[in-house]
Simulated assay, not measured.
Amino acid sequence: MATSSPDSASSFSARWLRGLSLVLLATVAVSLQNVITRIALSPKAIPILGGIINLGGYIDPTADKMQVTLLELLLRISFVVPLSWLIMPVFKPGAWGEARSVIVGSDRMLKLQIVAAGIFLFLSQIGIYLSIANIGPAMAITIFFTYPTVTTLLAWKLFSDRPSLQQWLAIILIYIGCAWLAFKPIDQNLFCPPICVKHPPSAAALPPAPNQTPTPNASNAPTIPKPATQPNPIIGYLAAIISSIVFALEGIIAQACFSKVNPATFTALVFTVEWLVLMAVTLPFIHVDINQELILMGGLLCLTTFATYLFSNFGIKAIGAASTAIIVSSRPAVTSILALLIIGDTLLPEQWGSIIVVTAGVVLMNVAKAMKKPT
């Protein structure tokens, strides 16, 4: 009987540990991206690492959250698109030629699928950014991680891939955890902008000074500043749910396209479609000032995006997609821990409990998927 040599076993262990480290780094990178998004969209400076430095407060507190979200996402994707085309040949030699054949080719269905995937990715990222701005990264990412359940149910509907008993149990756990999280009141002090402007009394309400005739239209009458926009938990929850649904749709389209085009080429094309959509819906309508700090935040978000992509791809090569998916399941918990450590984003014990339940459900979902035998 042939047995593996100690050297080959040692090589396998080293490769597996290297892959595990890379996937863990990818998980930290994407979780860090969520925390940076919270900082970029915050209307106030946030103490970092207990007050070592303050970051954030780069936007007007009265600015519309949707416009700010669109602007920051546009800044991020404006870095991502050229970088994705530059590094694409690293993952797929000849990828530029493959991308050109897709663009000028006659496969209209593939083109429509790529455009649809780009639009869905745009909607998903807008939703998660808006959710993070309203309920914070920990809760937003936890609710977003309902997307594996949507993908599983869509696969059952579209491809007759019936969920296993373990997958049904995982779906129930994830939805119970999300419902527990959503119906727990949020401490508004955690997400309230720093400048909650109170309405000063109007000129008509001020008593006239002695021997002075009231002058409601006097030029020195106090002005009423526009109140700062307040976080809205309902918008945050709904945005995270919508984001998870459209992200699952994008994933289904991606699976259908991978038989025709390499994932690296597909990703670059989808990012490009997203950038074009953002340009079309953002530049004509937003009225938010761009400053150096927001551009820097966009660059940091781009770096974490590619760190996630690079570490994930090389990690998958070392330990396989199934093991990677199980490790990726820890992202809600890792995001919550990093948000606590970096920006002091505290949660109630019940909220931690719901995050643990959702994380356990996602882990079970991916374990069940890995163990499921194809029919």
Rank of each mutant, 00 (worst) to 15 (best):
S4C: 08
F12Y: 10
R15G: 06
W16M: 14
W16D: 11
A26G: 10
L41W: 05
L41D: 10
L41P: 08
K44H: 12
A45V: 14
G50L: 10
I52C: 13
I52W: 13
Y58D: 08
I59C: 13
D60T: 14
E72S: 12
L83V: 08
W85Y: 03
F91Y: 07
F91C: 02
P93G: 05
G94T: 00
A95D: 01
A99D: 04
S106Y: 05
I114D: 01
T142W: 03
T149Q: 09
L154H: 10
K157A: 14
P163C: 03
W168N: 12
A170Y: 07
A182F: 10
D187W: 09
C196M: 15
H199N: 10
H199S: 08
P200L: 05
P200W: 01
S202L: 06
A204Q: 08
P208A: 04
P208S: 01
P208K: 00
T213E: 09
T215G: 08
T223S: 15
A239H: 04
A240L: 05
I242T: 14
I252F: 09
Q255Y: 06
Q255K: 07
V273L: 12
W275I: 03
L294Y: 11
L294W: 03
I295S: 04
A307Q: 14
T308S: 02
N313W: 03
A321S: 09
A325F: 05
R331G: 01
R331C: 06
S336F: 07
L340P: 03
I343H: 01
I343A: 04
L348W: 03
I356D: 05
V357D: 15
A360N: 12
V363D: 01
V363N: 03
A370I: 00
K373W: 03
K373T: 14
